[in-house]
């Protein structure tokens, strides 16, 4: 039971969504964009979030885009994590999505909802960061496109009245060899202690993490260390872990020291897998 009243709007187009957002805002309704809704409902129930209206975006056709016919894979923000996984269009994202929450929740949580989440993990962002994704947004000025690296600073920093319509990743990245390793405290169905995703693009290892810090991380310095062929795996992994040591989380899922231990082991196993040509895909 959500202890306050709010309105529900389900626009049929990007334009409708933008217009209703403005109208609700002007009427003092404090509207919020609504994807799968799981986070909004659970937060609102316990009083961690308040709003006067929700705008349910997931039936807008542009948000349902699912296409890889050209050079890019386009995935609508209104697709559920389960739909993304089943589409097999971006296997790393599919696998990452398949380890967020549980399967039934994956049938409700949307790609856009996970990316815009207020919870620190936002694991779906990792493959997009690795794939230099383009984020397409909708708003009063119509459709806009951003490079993810330009607007992702700890989280997607979108202008207030814009919402995510879809994401696009070049096929060379979407189809690249990849890794996804999710470590939890002990129970499988849990937030990540550390989720590590990686892909190999043009022989270069790209890597991003969730749960490691208070936000998803992709770090060029860390990638440079891991790709430094002049040193052995162990030292590369240690170097990368040391480079990240300052931002490691210390929370109820694990201490920062333990995260560093897990991180190092994960990095070693990824590097060894590359050597052993066990690419792609190791859990």
């Amino acid at each position: 039971m959500i202890p306050f009243d709010f309105e529900y709007h389900r626009p049929a187009s990007v334009r409708e969504a933008a217009v209703v957002y403005r109208q609700l805002e002007e009427a003092g309704k404090a509207p919020v964009w609504y994807g799968g809704g799981s986070e909004l409902i659970s937060m609102a129930r316990v009083g961690n979030m308040g709003f006067g209206a929700v705008i349910d975006l997931k039936s807008i056709p542009d948000c349902r885009l699912l296409d890889n016919s050209g050079d890019e894979v386009h995935l609508g923000a209104g697709l559920t994590l389960d739909e993304i996984r089943r589409s097999e269009k971006f296997p790393l994202l599919g696998q990452t999505a398949g380890r967020i929450a549980d399967h039934t929740m994956q049938c409700k949580i949307t790609l856009g909802g996970n990316l815009a989440s207020t919870i620190i993990y936002r694991e779906a962002a990792l493959p997009l960061l690795l794939g230099d994704a383009t984020i397409t947004t909708g708003g009063e000025k119509g459709i806009k496109r951003y490079r993810i690296r330009d607007i992702f600073r700890d989280r997607l920093q979108l202008p207030k009245r814009e919402f995510i319509v879809s994401t696009s990743v070049a096929r060379q990245y979407a189809e690249a060899p990849y890794f996804h390793i999710k470590k939890t405290k002990n129970e499988k169905i849990d937030y990540p202690l550390i989720t590590t995703t990686a892909l190999i693009a043009n022989g270069y290892l790209r890597i991003a993490f969730s749960g490691l810090a208070a936000y998803p991380v992709r770090d060029e310095v860390v990638e440079a260390i891991l790709n430094d062929q002049s040193i052995d795996f162990e030292r590369r992994a240690e170097g990368a872990a040391a480079a990240l040591a300052g931002i490691l989380l210390e929370d109820m899922n694990g201490s920062s020291a333990y995260r560093r231990f897990v991180l190092k082991n994960t990095l070693v196993s990824i590097l060894e897998s590359i050597k052993d040509a066990q690419v792609p895909c190791i859990r």
Partner: peptide, 13 residues
């Protein structure tokens, strides 16, 4: 036909 946790779906949806 898809399993959904009905505690996290608005009736309106």
């Amino acid at each position: 036909g898809t399993p959904i946790k009905s505690c996290l779906m608005l009736t309106a949806e």
